[in-house]
Design a protein around this nucleic acid. Structure first.
Lengths: 151, 151
DNA sequence: GTCAGTGCAAACTTTTTGCAACTAC
DNA sequence: GTAGTTGCAAAAAGTTTGCACTGAC
């Protein structure tokens, strides 16, 4: 299953690169491979470390930034912005989900809600071609409700 | 009406400061006043300029950052994160709304949808005390749909 | 062989922090 | 008088950019 998805997204990347006159560099495939082995969110620093340590492939931060822009444009990655750093996650075959963010400890929890999804999908947007969306719900997580302390 | 709201939020700030043992400095009230004269979103740089130019009050950027944290904690301001800079907006008596963000030109449009609001409010969150939420819908705005160009 | 892509380091931007001066209490 | 606040400047953190080198085509 997982390998299947990786093959598919590589195929999508290949088509995207060809169509846009970009080169099929090993860096791009290695980055895509690594991203699709990460389940949740990641930021550039985390991706950098993971590639340096777990994968044998070392790429520069600049290339990570460049490549992520490509992957977003290719529809393979989406970008989130909570906290100080940009967070990313793979988007192909990744279930749409929502985010609960604790305003005290910063913990991010994902959840799904079919009714909510339908409500958002059914929202009448005039003259706007939706690609994806993000719902962030802020509040206090269970742990922080008792002790309202700031980190 | 507007003045009424400003008086009310100042009152809320006063109570918040007293309860938490903070001082009632003129900077804090001037910042609150300025924020509540801004209708939409703003970032720290914009707030800084507006205070320097339109208001007679000059405060340092450091104080703006410090004060905004207080105001968020007091429930008078909420924070958004689209684009590179943190965006803020006043939250007292400010209608909950959603955001459409154009992935091509970056334009942010606000809209309201009662059904959506109810769906979000009705979403069953276990062990999470909601304070507020943000829905960001990404896609192409009318202008950018024709010419899919990147800025 | 050519030019897009990469790595590196420097530059930039936004936000945080340390510290001396100030002031609300 | 004395902490809490402010302003400034330096530092930190994240991202972008310039440029020489490399390698995909």
């Amino acid at each position: 299953m997982e390998e299947n998805i990786k093959d598919t997204v590589k195929q999508i990347l290949t088509e995207y690169l060809q169509k846009n006159g970009h080169r099929k560099t090993p860096e791009r495939y290695a980055i895509l491979e690594t991203i699709y082995s990460i389940t949740g969110h990641f930021d550039v620093e985390g991706l950098y470390k993971q590639m340096a340590e777990k994968e044998k492939f070392r790429v520069s931060r600049a290339t990570l930034y460049n490549t992520i822009v490509l992957l977003i444009d290719a529809g393979l990655v989406i970008k989130h912005q909570f906290g100080n750093t940009s967070q990313y996650e793979r988007s192909y075959k990744n279930e749409t989900h929502h985010h609960m963010i604790c305003t005290s400890c910063g913990k991010v929890t994902e959840f799904e809600d079919e009714a909510l999804k339908e409500a958002i999908a059914g929202s009448p947007l005039r003259n706007f071609q939706v690609s994806h969306y993000s719902l962030y719900i802020y509040g206090l997580c269970a742990r922080c409700q008792g002790s309202k302390r700031k980190k």
